[in-house]
C-alpha cells in the first residue's frame, strides 16, 4: 500500500467515525515530530496549528511525568482530547456531553486497531515526511538578509531525502496559506537547537504576516 493510500484510508476512517459517533465533532492525527498525517476536513488549519504549537510545549515539559500519554481540555461547551497511539497522536474534538464509552471506544480501540491493520498490510515509514511544522522565532540584525535558520538535525534528515545533497532553500507556508521561498542555513546557537523552531528575519515575518510563537509549515526544496 502506498503512503497516499495509507493516508487516504486514515482520513476516510476519521470521517466515518465522525459520521457515526454522536458527539465527535472533528479529529486529526499527527506524528511525534509534528507532521499532520490525516485530518478531518472539519478541522480548520488554524486549530491544527495551535494544537501542534501547544502540544510541542507540553511534550517538552512532560518528561517530568514520564512523557505525554494523553491530554484533555474540558470546556463549558466542548472537549478536546489528545491521545498517544504507537508513534502517533490522535486529536479529537467532541461535544461537552459525549458518551465516555464512545470516546474510549474510538481512541483506545477503533483507531489503534485501524492503525495496526494498515501497518500490518504494508508498513509505511510515516516519520519520513517532508513537510514539518515549526514555531516561529523572529530575529533582526544588519546582515540577516532573508535567510531563515532551522535545526541542523532537520536539515540533515531532509538532505537524506535528496541523496545527501545540502538543502539550500525552503518553502514556508503561513497559517493563512501565504507561502514564500527563502534560503536556509543551520541554527548555530546550541541553546536554540532541538526546540522545533525556525528563526525567520523580521521582514520575512512581516511579508508572511506571522508572529513569534505561531506555527508555519516548512518544506525543503529540491537542491
Amino acid at each position: 500500500m502506498e503512503k497516499e493510500a495509507y493516508v487516504e484510508a486514515l482520513k476516510n476512517t476519521l470521517t466515518e467515525i465522525r459520521n457515526v459517533s454522536p458527539g465527535i465533532n472533528s479529529s486529526f492525527i499527527f506524528t511525534e515530530d509534528g507532521a499532520v498525517i490525516a485530518g478531518d476536513p472539519e478541522v480548520a488549519n488554524m486549530s491544527i496549528n495551535t494544537t501542534l504549537s501547544s502540544f510541542q510545549k507540553i511534550a517538552e515539559k512532560a518528561e517530568l511525568i514520564g512523557g505525554l500519554r494523553s491530554f484533555s481540555v474540558d470546556g463549558a461547551q466542548g472537549r478536546v482530547y489528545i491521545s498517544h497511539i504507537n508513534n502517533l497522536y490522535l486529536v479529537t474534538a467532541t461535544s461537552k456531553n459525549i458518551d465516555e464509552n464512545i470516546l474510549r471506544s474510538v481512541t483506545q480501540v477503533i483507531i489503534p486497531t485501524v492503525l495496526k491493520l494498515l501497518e500490518t498490510i504494508n508498513p509505511v515509514p510515516l516519520k519520513s515526511t517532508q513537510s514539518q511544522q515549526l514555531v516561529v522565532e523572529a530575529f533582526s540584525g544588519f546582515f540577516t538578509g532573508d535567510t531563515v535558520q532551522i535545526d541542523p538535525k532537520l536539515l540533515s534528515e531532509w538532505s537524506g531525502l535528496f541523496n545527501g545533497q545540502n538543502i539550500n532553500e525552503v518553502e514556508i507556508k503561513a497559517p493563512d496559506g501565504e507561502t514564500t521561498r527563502c534560503k536556509v542555513k543551520e541554527i548555530t546557537d546550541t541553546n536554540l537547537q532541538g526546540k522545533g523552531i525556525i528563526r525567520i528575519p523580521d521582514r520575512v515575518c512581516k511579508a508572511l504576516e506571522v508572529n513569534k510563537g505561531e506555527s508555519v509549515t516548512i518544506k525543503p526544496l529540491e537542491p
Binding site: 495551535t50 504549537s53 507540553i58 517530568l64 491530554f71 481540555v73 463549558a76 466542548g78 478536546v80 461537552k96
Partner: peptide
C-alpha cells in the same frame, strides 16, 4: 489556547497523563 481555537467555552478542567 485550545479552548479558544476549538471554541470549547470556559475551561474548567485540564488533565495531563504521562507514563509515570
Amino acid at each position: 489556547i485550545l479552548s479558544s481555537s476549538f471554541e470549547l467555552g470556559g475551561v474548567y478542567k485540564v488533565t495531563l497523563e504521562g507514563e509515570k
